[in-house]
Amino acid sequence: MILTDKKVAIIGAGPVGLTLARLLQQKGVDVSVYERDKDATARVWGGTLDLHQHSGQLAMQRAGLLEQYFAKSIPMGVIIADYNANVLMTKEVTSVREHANPEINRNDLRQMLLHSLQPNTVLWNRQCVDLEMQEGKWLLKFEGKPAETADLVICANGGMSKVRSFVTDAEVTDTGTFIIQADVQQPELRSPEFYRLCNGYRLMAAHEGNLLVANPKNGDLLSYGVIFKKPEDLKSIDFTDTAAVTEFLSERFKGWDAHFMELFSATSSYVSLTTKVLPLDKPWKAERPLPITLVGDAAHLMPPFAGEGVNTGLLDAVILSENLTGNQFRSIDDAICDYEDQMFVYARAAQKASLENELQMRERDFSFDQLIK
């Protein structure tokens, strides 16, 4: 095996980095994961994830974790509602499709993956600030922590990776859409009417360029996101001020039914983000000082409007791990090159679908039933 007696460093303990570590450890590879979060209890913010059969679920199957994923995930139907809180369409979960793409809480997924790894695989509170070459190895430098060495570095530290420049000069660009993510604690008590409207389903509603997607079963939270074309005056809003954001949303969604106003008023916290993309429109650097590559959002950040982001990254983990631990390649560089050739094809297709959906969703006459078939 080309990784015999080699040390692999994975930067980032998201779903892709942890899954890749699991796949490599199963083949006896010496691997460490370096994560900037303080410890394993740090909350991973965001809605649930649905893993697709031929990418995310394939990775779980190869990692020996598919049954655990099914046990921790929830098959969910979809309700399409209008801004008056009238249900327009309901997509049920059938017995045939209950394992098609069930939703899993991000924190549950992280804990499942962490428990699958050997003790001390993940080194926490490691913010990687730089890489350099030292005597034929990578020297990983961390903020306030001792440096580490590795023969191969795999960057899985998200779309805003600081060490991606060793692989590509591509830069992240805004796609023009703004998302506000939010949580409601004890939704059955704090927003009972909206909670009943969801009826255990994911709920989607759109009107005149304002979109709302809610999941009432994100652990013990109701999580939702509102989506709209990025306006010019967002800098005036303090998104750490819950009351101010609630007021902003209530005004922006003025005219929507009281169910939605109740939801905003019950919200306990908000996080805002502008959707971004890392274009795959030019080849990555062929000449690299030592073996290094990218996976997940660090490689192909895309908007979240086709559900492909994490799934594309988990497919990265499958292909790269198989290339590195099989017998078909003579060197680490050859294995990486083949992975990247494959990844450019399927990741470009995923980005294209995500961007097309994004443009469609920003139209003022958009309805979610155009996407939910």
Rank of each mutant, 00 (worst) to 15 (best):
E67D: 15
E67N: 12
T90R: 13
L51N: 04
L294G: 02
G56H: 03
A85P: 15
P304G: 07
I319E: 12
E148C: 09
L140P: 11
Y270V: 00
E363W: 04
R43P: 01
F166N: 04
P15N: 04
Y34Q: 02
T41E: 06
R362Y: 05
D365V: 08
F305V: 02
P291Y: 10
A317F: 05
L301N: 03
K373A: 01
I237N: 00
K72R: 07
K145Y: 09
E262R: 05
A214R: 05
G77K: 00
A244V: 00
E188C: 01
D169K: 13
K137N: 12
N101E: 11
K91Y: 00
Q134V: 13
Q181Y: 10
G255A: 14
V172I: 10
T168V: 08
M1C: 01
H99F: 00
D333M: 08
I332L: 14
D333F: 02
D281P: 02
P75T: 15
K230F: 07
Q328M: 15
I179F: 02
A85F: 11
E132H: 06
K137A: 12
I154E: 08
V213N: 09
L123S: 11
E143N: 12
T90C: 02
D174Y: 08
S272N: 07
Q134I: 05
E308H: 01
V213G: 01
A298V: 01
S55P: 03
V96K: 14
A21G: 00
T325R: 11
M343R: 11
R106A: 05
E193Y: 04
S367K: 11
N311G: 04
E322K: 09
K91E: 09
D369K: 14
H300M: 01
G219E: 13
T275P: 01
R110P: 10
N101A: 15
G46C: 03
L278M: 08
G144C: 08
F194Y: 15
P75D: 12
Q360A: 14
G12M: 09
S250P: 02
L3R: 10
A286I: 13
S354M: 06
F366S: 06
W138G: 13
F329N: 11
V310E: 12
R164N: 06
D82Q: 09
T267Y: 01
D316M: 03
I2N: 14
S32C: 01
T325M: 13
M361L: 07
Q360L: 09
I10P: 13
I11C: 06
F344R: 15
D334I: 03
L222P: 14
L294Y: 05
K145D: 07
F239P: 00
S223R: 05
G159M: 09
K276I: 07
E322H: 08
V153A: 14
D183H: 02
G309V: 06
V78A: 07
H207T: 04
W45I: 00
L139V: 14
A42Y: 08
M261I: 12
Y346I: 12
L278Q: 04
P303D: 07
V31H: 05
S367F: 10
V277M: 06
V31P: 07
S272C: 03
S367V: 14
E148H: 13
A59E: 02
S95E: 15
L320R: 04
V96D: 14
Q53K: 09
P279A: 10
R106F: 12
D30C: 00
Q370F: 12
L197E: 09
S321H: 07
V245C: 01
